[in-house]
Design a protein around this nucleic acid. Structure first.
Lengths: 347, 347
DNA sequence: CTGTTAGCGCATTCAA
DNA sequence: TTGAATGCGCTAACAG
């Protein structure tokens, strides 16, 4: 098969004794005579010819690649989204590449810059923090972009978001229905888009259900990760005795659960735990964790479709989509009948 | 800032009243007079100029990108590896992009083809299944590739692998030390590279420690995932009563643990569980899971360095690296003193 | 049906 | 120091 180190259309054409245009045609499946086709195929095989995508893209002005950039590939919510995105875009003939931006907004801007420079035709971005410079970079970008997550007012980019305020409302409503009164909140950093949204959702819900809250039962982890969640939960439990804890995502919920059980606190009997995102992590936990389904799959799908739409029609009107949440009830928030007496008299 | 939809060197040059060569030089930081520099900068800003990476790459023959292709982004072991790889390659000036190949070997070949065609300078590949056609594609590839995982004899590509046979030995040794006798094995598909290696490691270890095994206590999940693991564990437990279960990765271990506790079996008192890969998933589980550390971080780092080395010197001799395993002991395999009596008399 | 030719946008050699 | 000109490898008019 492969014989030379690197081969080009010219080499193949020479070997086949035809023009480079003919080679290009055959290889792209355009009409050609059987003899020509055979000669070209033979030569291409013999030389182990592989077309150069860089050159092709320069010529045709497309890369047929789409990038999905997320802050933390370790977060299971992105895994689910990714699969959905891959499914949608591959059906449209695009290849999906993943980029992990760090938490650092500076990284995001660099990423944007480097993607802007090429190799992809469009970008799906789920930014943790939307800073002024990021917004500027977004605006200046010549690349079709769809943002997954809320955007500051005035930034009109295609965008799909979850209604996390409603989502937390669902969680609190459920907990209230289970007789819980002192509902604590383990958030991620409040200077992030989801952190801010989820905090306001929590406060809103507490208020709506006539409950009370205090600084004691609210805490913000330094990050949306297990490690940070563990630390935050420990701190929270050191200073208060809630009968339920809402966590801003499933990783934080797993951490909180772990911290609770390591202290001998029973879940859900003593304390109920609810997470958000409804990822595998909630399902795998022991006990499994009730979680607010923010429609990650739906959001991913909608975002991918939005991007495809814009790719097809760059001048389409900006479109924003909001996905409504639902609640996936699992073990961590519902006391089973034969243990109920304990929960009826929460601390 | 940005004014036009798309700008090129030519546009910038016209606006600045200089040659495109000068624009190129200024923008690449080559020596130029202050006046020239100022003019170019101003024009570039005004036009919102962004260089076209495609054209640049065609010219310079590099993309400064490296791809890390894994079978399943949902597997936490790849997340850890990814971070390490990103660290190493970014220090060398490369951007890392991720590709998720499906489980399907066909996908891997297509991926290889499409990467081969450009957009990356090198590839880190961790294939689940190494089929004949994949090997052919690997051989034919004109792209520097480092394989993470074992390779059939005779395929001389840069490669780094874990010693999973030794790894399972560690797990079994530990379990034997804890007084376990009937050690079951929840594997992934045996037609995968890790599946085959881990099975032989298990058999080897059982033999070495003078234990016995049977088809009853061995099962292969259809996939290295939680869902498949849950099903496999249920089947296994339906037909045998082991006092310990070694799982071929942490996802399978989490699934097995979950299946055990859902049946009211106590872990570790009744059954000990050990996973492999030593990922976050093992740490997060409840109880936390003892896991064989196959050196994922070290492997990732070594692989990245191997790739950088080959990028720097395409003619370097092929190098293969083997990383030795260690064991991370956690709650799932060690009975605490105050509950010990139960474990002393395993079924 | 096939060949000739002209760029895609850029970095770079060679002259000036 | 700067400009003119070349070509990276490919596709797509345009001719024949």
């Amino acid at each position: 098969m492969a014989e030379s180190r690197k081969s080009t259309l010219v080499l193949v054409a020479e070997r086949a004794g035809v023009s480079i245009a003919s080679v290009s045609r055959v290889l792209n499946g355009l009409p050609a005579s059987p003899q020509l086709t055979a000669k070209v195929r033979e030569a291409a095989d013999a030389l182990g010819y592989v077309p150069d995508a860089t050159a092709r893209s320069l010529k045709v002005g497309r890369t047929d690649q789409i990038s999905f950039a997320v802050a933390d590939v370790g977060n299971p919510v992105y895994v689910a989204m990714m699969h959905e995105v891959a499914r949608v875009v591959s059906k449209a003939g695009y290849r999906l590449v993943l980029s992990s931006t760090g938490n650092d907004p500076q990284d995001q801007i660099e990423l944007l810059g480097s993607l802007n420079r090429g190799f992809v035709d469009g970008l799906l971005l789920s930014p943790l923090r939307v800073t002024e410079p990021l917004v500027d970079a977004l605006r200046a970008s010549r690349l079709p972009i769809v943002i997954i997550g809320s955007l500051p007012a005035g930034v009109d980019l295609d965008n799909v978001r979850a209604d996390s305020v409603a989502g937390i409302g669902l969680a609190v409503e459920h907990l209230v229905g289970q007789g819980r009164k002192r509902i604590a909140f383990v958030n991620g950093p409040v200077d992030t888009v989801p952190g801010a949204a989820r905090l306001s959702g929590y406060l809103n819900a507490i208020d709506r259900f006539g409950l009370s809250t205090s600084a004691d039962v609210q805490i913000a982890a330094s990050d949306f990760t297990y490690k940070a969640g563990r630390k935050a939960a420990a701190k929270l439990l050191g200073r208060s005795t809630p009968d339920a804890i809402v966590c801003a995502n499933d990783l934080l919920a797993v951490a909180t659960l772990k911290e609770l059980t390591s202290r001998g606190v029973r879940v859900p009997e003593d304390v109920a735990v609810v997470g958000m995102d409804d990822t595998d992590a909630a399902e795998l936990a022991n006990p499994s964790i009730t979680s607010v389904d923010l429609g990650s799959g739906k959001r991913a799908k909608a975002a991918a479709k939005l991007l495809l739409r814009r790719l097809a029609n760059p001048d389409a009107a900006v479109k924003q989509v909001v996905i409504e949440p639902t609640l996936s009830v699992r073990e961590s928030s519902v006391v089973k009948a034969d243990a109920k007496e304990t929960a009826e008299v929460p601390a």
